[in-house]
Amino acid sequence: MSARDLVVLGSASAVPTRFRNHNGYLLRWDGHGLLFDPGEGTQRQMTLAGVSAHDVTWICVTHFHGDHCLGVPGIVQRIARDGVPHPVHAVFPASGAVYWERLRHATAFVDTAVIDERPVSGDRAEIAAGPFTLTARRLSHPVESYGYRLEEPDGVTMLPAELAARGVRGPLVRRLQQEGRVTTRGGRTVTLEECSVRRPGQKVAFVMDTRLCDAAFELADGVDLLVIESTFLDEDAALAAEYGHLTAGQAGRVAARGGVRRLVLTHFSERYRTDDEPRFAAQAAAAGFTGDIVVAHDLDRVPLPRRRRAPAGGGRADG
């Protein structure tokens, strides 16, 4: 089975600690690897996590504060050094193009031609990305910052009992999937709707540095996995608002309203101690979120929840 999971490469905010590296998140998705916000030290964290430059097919930068992008030079140079042959698409705010250029060519090295730059601008941008769509939405932060949403199209799950009852077997099954309608040897016309249920595509959202805003709620709506900053605890909400960040409770509120299935809290301020960690999860839950909560740690691997499957009679259910 193809892997779909999140590899946490770093979970600190502006200042790394003894236990938390700067940001870095690799979303593995059926042979694609989306590297979000590679902060300082990401290249080494990838080695510790057992992933390589060859696993990276996308680099997505939310904004150009150092803890979200200072790892770009090392990643790009590693891609070049290791001879990665496939395109690596780079998505970043167009307003920060000067910073991207400085990071992209930070030092002398034998360059690579595989980096495909795709700057985004405006309040919303949608990027066709093969098996999924990548949507960028502008957030609320002192510098221009974007959140990202990855979404695959809905599919179908075939129902063997219904196929057998209608005499659809062998090559006819594939034709039914492709064409939506087949005629059996007995002359019966069978439709795809009779023999399948809708399989909702999986969705993941990354919401990094931002205050509460409509875009954060839109990105999180209906996703299976939400990776979201929770820089501060709720008692420090004034600081969060001043610096353009979320509290744990606010992150929980975004997840609750969106019906998120698994919530990953990350980007923690260095002001908090290890024994404060349970409070982040508790405050997210107190905001009304009742799904799975993961307080991220470096080198964690967080699987996507199992696929949802719509029952034959309509509606949605986990499958």
Results as ranks from 00 to 15, higher is better:
residue 300 D to I: 05
residue 26 L to P: 14
residue 298 D to H: 15
residue 129 A to P: 07
residue 211 R to W: 00
residue 156 V to M: 00
residue 170 G to D: 06
residue 102 R to K: 14
residue 174 R to F: 09
residue 192 L to Y: 11
residue 280 F to N: 06
residue 137 R to C: 01
residue 318 D to G: 00
residue 2 S to V: 11
residue 39 G to T: 09
residue 219 L to M: 07
residue 217 F to E: 01
residue 111 D to T: 08
residue 125 A to P: 05
residue 67 D to H: 14
residue 109 F to N: 04
residue 60 C to T: 08
residue 95 S to K: 11
residue 168 V to S: 05
residue 297 H to I: 08
residue 172 L to Q: 15
residue 98 V to S: 14
residue 268 F to P: 02
residue 144 E to S: 12
residue 237 A to G: 12
residue 72 V to P: 13
residue 4 R to H: 07
residue 145 S to D: 01
residue 99 Y to N: 09
residue 314 G to L: 03
residue 205 A to H: 03
residue 85 P to G: 09
residue 86 H to M: 01
residue 220 A to E: 07
residue 216 A to V: 06
residue 290 T to Y: 10
residue 203 K to D: 04
residue 226 L to Q: 06
residue 218 E to W: 06
residue 38 P to S: 10
residue 291 G to L: 08
residue 51 V to R: 03
residue 118 R to C: 07
residue 155 G to K: 03
residue 20 R to T: 12
residue 222 G to E: 05
residue 162 E to Q: 12
residue 182 V to T: 11
residue 73 P to M: 13
residue 296 A to I: 13
residue 240 A to V: 13
residue 112 T to Q: 08
residue 173 V to P: 06
residue 31 G to Y: 11
residue 186 G to A: 13
residue 16 P to H: 10
residue 26 L to F: 08
residue 274 T to G: 15
residue 217 F to D: 05
residue 205 A to W: 04
residue 120 V to I: 12
residue 48 L to M: 13
residue 291 G to T: 01
residue 258 G to P: 07
residue 295 V to S: 15
residue 248 A to N: 10
residue 244 G to F: 12
residue 273 R to S: 15
residue 273 R to T: 05
residue 117 E to T: 06
residue 95 S to D: 10
residue 74 G to N: 07
residue 58 W to M: 04
residue 218 E to S: 09
residue 65 H to Y: 14
residue 151 E to K: 13
residue 139 L to S: 00
residue 30 D to A: 14
residue 259 G to D: 02
residue 227 V to G: 01
residue 194 E to C: 02
residue 75 I to Y: 02
residue 187 G to E: 07
residue 164 A to I: 07
